[in-house]
Each structure stands twice: as C-alpha cells, then as structure tokens.
C-alpha cells in the first residue's frame, strides 16, 4: 500500500518537481536576466507535464467512461517530443543571456535543431512516437552548452562561486540531467520496441530520468533562492 503511494507519487514527479522552483519563484520573486528564460521553461514543462501524466493515467486506468478501444488516442509520446523542443529553446535563451560568448552559438543551435526536428518528423519518423533521435540530439546539444559554460568558468581568471553566481546551480543540475539522459533517450526506442522484457526495463529506466528531473528542479530552486539574496 505504502509502496503504491510512493510509486504514484514518483510517477507524478514530472509535475510536482517543477512546482518546487515555481514556488520559490513566487515566494521570493528573484530578479535576474536569466530568470525569465527558466521561468518560461518551467511553465511550459509544467503544462506539458500535466498533460503527459494525465494521458498516461487515462491510458493506464479506466477513467471517466473512456473505453479500452479509445485508449490508444491517449498517447502522450508527442508531448515528450514537444517538451524536448521547448526545453532546448528555453535553455538556449538561458545560455544566451549568460554572456556574449554564447550569443552566436545560441542563435545557430535552435535554428538547426528546429530544422532537424521538421525534417525528422516530415520525412522519417512519426511525431506521435517518442523520438530517440530528437531527444538524444537535444540532450547532447544542452550538454555541449553546459560543457562550454563550465570551460569558460574554469578558464576565467575571476572566480565565480555558486552562491554569488546562481546560474551555476542551474548548469550543474542540467549537466547531470543531460549527461545521463543522453544515453536513456538514445536507446529508448530500441529498448521499447525490441522485446517485452526490454520494454519493462525501459519503463523502469524512466525512473532515473524522473529522479534527475527532480535534481534539476531542486538546483533551479536553489539558484532562484540565491539570486534573490544576491546583491
């Protein structure tokens, strides 16, 4: 019983985890040029997260008269694709406001990524299926942003500590999230459609994604908190 409650709680983490930084944002009202980008990412991710988990719940349980035949309509994969696109766009915005160093790359990368997404879904894959190619590319690009950012921080003469430069927290959380999820996203399609055993494994692996999303949200919340106390 307790395990079931915990299971449900964890399954819905794609929704409630996003509420943590949003709550800090509402309570402390931090001000900073990078806040807007993250704020919009959180709002978009929350809306899509609610839809994703709602679809998943309907698909899982018989609910409000939805028959088993109609359950196939309640497929949430397309929203994961959408979430991936929005995540890259908003985090590109986030890195763009960090310094001029990112200005050029953050202009080029979103355009290339959107072009890649259009070509992928028009000619090769269906938008209604979670795309490993799209999500792995997105995670890889975000990871490159994070590595470039860290390289700049390390080579900069001026020391930037996490408390006096809150975006470090966001980048730290995002590095963990993208580094691990790159592999999860990359092999997700393969695991899902290879065999039932691997499909069950893939569903279990998604918990790692959820755990890393919680870490990312907590690191964003910490960044918001320090941004508010920063002078």
């Amino acid at each position: 019983m307790l395990l079931n409650i915990f299971r449900t709680f964890f399954d819905w983490s794609e929704v409630w985890a996003l509420l943590i930084p949003l709550a800090i944002l509402i309570i402390y009202k931090p001000k900073g040029s990078w806040i807007t980008a993250i704020k919009w990412y959180l709002i978009t991710a929350l809306i899509l997260g609610i839809i994703i988990d709602f679809y998943w719940y309907v698909n899982k349980e018989f609910w409000f008269g939805v028959t088993k035949e109609k359950k196939n309509y309640w497929d949430n994969n397309k929203f994961y694709n959408l979430q991936s696109i929005f995540r890259l766009l908003f985090f590109s915005w986030f890195f763009a406001v960090q310094s001029n160093y990112f200005k050029r790359i953050t202009r080029v990368v979103p355009i290339l990524f959107l072009s890649f997404a259009i070509i992928l879904f028009v000619f090769f894959k269906s938008f209604t299926i979670l795309s490993s190619h799209l999500m792995a590319t997105e995670a890889g690009l975000l990871l490159i942003y994070c590595l470039l950012y860290t390289y700049r921080v390390i080579t900069d003469d001026k020391p930037l500590f996490s408390t006096n430069h809150p975006p470090h927290w966001v980048v730290g959380g995002l590095t963990l999230y993208t580094a691990v999820n790159f592999f999860i996203f990359l092999f997700y399609n393969y695991l899902m459609y290879h065999s039932q055993r691997l499909k069950d494994y893939a569903v279990g692996v998604w918990d790692v994604h959820n755990a890393l999303l919680i870490i990312l949200c907590i690191s964003i919340a910490i960044a918001f908190y320090y941004e508010r106390t920063r002078k």
């Binding site: 860290t150 963990l176 580094a179 592999f183």
Partner: peptide
C-alpha cells in the same frame, strides 16, 4: 556516466 558527471561537477 552519472559518476562521471558527478566527478566533473
């Protein structure tokens, strides 16, 4: 990868 990312951070 998780260990690598944590070590990196």
């Amino acid at each position: 990868v998780l260990l690598l990312a944590i070590s990196f951070l």
